[in-house]
Amino acid sequence: MSDVGFNRQGVWAIYRFEMARFVRTLLQSVVTPVITTSLYFVVFGSAIGSRMSRVGGVPYGAFIVPGLIMLSILTASISNASFGIYFPKFTGTIYELLSAPISFVEMILGYVGAAATKSISLGLIILATATAFVPVEIRHPFFMVAFLLLTTITFSLFGFVIGIWAKGFEQLQLIPMLVVTPLTFLGGAFYSIDMLPPRWRTVALFNPVVYLISGFRWSFYETADVGVGVSLAMTSGFLGLLLLVVGWMFKSGYRLKK
């Protein structure tokens, strides 16, 4: 490593360490969400979906695929990244990160990069699983990948912030369980927000997850609740906000340094 250069080895070490944990816990990290999502496809896609009309010209079973992938990757991104940074705090091994010649940007690249990789893998596995239950079409693969990347990176960063903020395992679960999951369910994972009464549609537009699901669904079927440009801008804005928060956390040593 040069005296002031980028700590490539450090980023790679964190990334590999986190990915090794992912491989070690495949049953929990991949098999469980895939089974859960498959059950959604069976219940809402095949059983109930066959009795429902098309939504935006898309069969209901296929309509819910992007929303269900979003639900899984949002949860996985937050939980992977938050656990990744919280666990060293809990065990005390954080001393090694804090005493290493590694900048906060490099640390984020390692942790968030690994969390995003895990979530993307999970999203692609769920997508492949969905094709076994319902007909899926991807009209804009480039945008699909772009939304997948943007969402996993943004929510992994969100998870990283939660991991630094959390003082215990309860707090670690608090935001994913009480905030993110309800927002995803109410964010149009199972319906179009156009189906809501006008007043509730306006309320729904304050839910950031609406923009993620809408944009992601557009990349599949060209049907969206809000413009794709707005979706991209809102998600990028959330990403920018999180970068500022993480930057402040590292600069001030918030809940990391005494």
């Binding site: 700590n7 080895q9 450090g10 070490a13 590999r16 990160l97 290493a100």
Partner: peptide
């Protein structure tokens, strides 16, 4: 949960080596 080899190798990488 790490092996001895993995954790020591991790430390070396973390310090930029």
């Amino acid at each position: 949960f790490e092996t001895v080899w993995a954790t020591v190798t991790f430390s070396r990488g973390l310090f930029g080596r």
